[in-house]
Write a protein that binds this DNA or RNA. Structure first.
Lengths: 135, 135
DNA sequence: GTTGACCTTCCCATGGTTGGAAGCTTCAGC
DNA sequence: GCTGAAGCTTCCAACCATGGGAAGGTCAAC
């Protein structure tokens, strides 16, 4: 299985497969005589693991830890849960941040009549929160 | 007003003030004979405008547009509102993405007993969503 | 005149991903 | 056996916003 086929099978782009190998998230793939990377079933499973972890927003470093826990058949699930909880906290913080941006901005958008006239509460607010539409 | 004082007054770091100038978001500051950048009231107001825009998550390019609308006293508020709405859509998409990550992950965390035993629904799910706890 | 706080420019790093360029290999069709 | 397309290789650079640090100049106060 060449890198292109592995990319299709795993849902990870060839570019990213090479990148993950370069940062040591994947062990170096075996090669053909011509230098082409070769992948087997097990590699595909690892790549899918990585992709699903990325889909949940885990960072490369977190995934590094998850993969090693995954491969350690004697890991305590406590450790996995701790990594997941920590990431959950991160997601919560990000969500809160975005949500407050959204709240502030959608309030401003609601206040702006959005026609041909130049006066605009959005710009007023950005120019100096003190003047108008203080949230 | 040197760059340090401008940074304090505006809440934008000196590093970022220089960066904004280098990418043309700010006009080049005037300089002392020694080459120190000088800032006045108007510059501070622009910097605060930029900072507040960043706080709402606008990108540099979007801010470039907002600043130019701000300075154009004849702009139609329609245009400002369009920029804001577009960013609001962006925030919504990001929020949805994070929220679905959070939902999936918190479900997995709930399923994991998190003790000394090695079996772990979180890893099982990452290893192959087909097996267990399909969302 | 020295010390310490400030300023300057320049380069590098982050994180995850993507893009391109230049060159080699493989394979199918003829 | 030749040709062309597609796929592979490595390397380098970009995105966005931010920060760190080095090497050196400047300004104030003591």
């Amino acid at each position: 299985m060449n890198i292109g086929a592995a990319a299709k099978a795993s849902g990870v782009s060839a570019k990213m497969i090479r990148h993950y190998e370069s940062v040591g998230l994947l062990p170096p793939a075996s090669r053909t005589d011509a230098g082409y990377r070769l992948y087997g079933e097990k590699d595909i499973r690892t790549l899918q693991f990585i992709r699903r972890s990325r889909d949940l927003g885990f960072s490369i470093e977190e995934i590094r830890g998850l993969v090693s826990l995954w491969q350690d058949k004697t890991r305590p699930s406590r450790e996995v849960k701790a990594v997941a909880r920590q990431h959950l906290d991160f997601l919560d913080r990000k969500l809160e941040e975005l949500q407050s941006m959204k709240n502030a901005l959608s309030h401003l958008v609601d206040c702006c009549h959005g026609d041909e006239r130049p006066d605009c509460p959005i710009l007023d607010n950005l120019a100096g929160a003190g003047n108008l539409t203080r949230m």
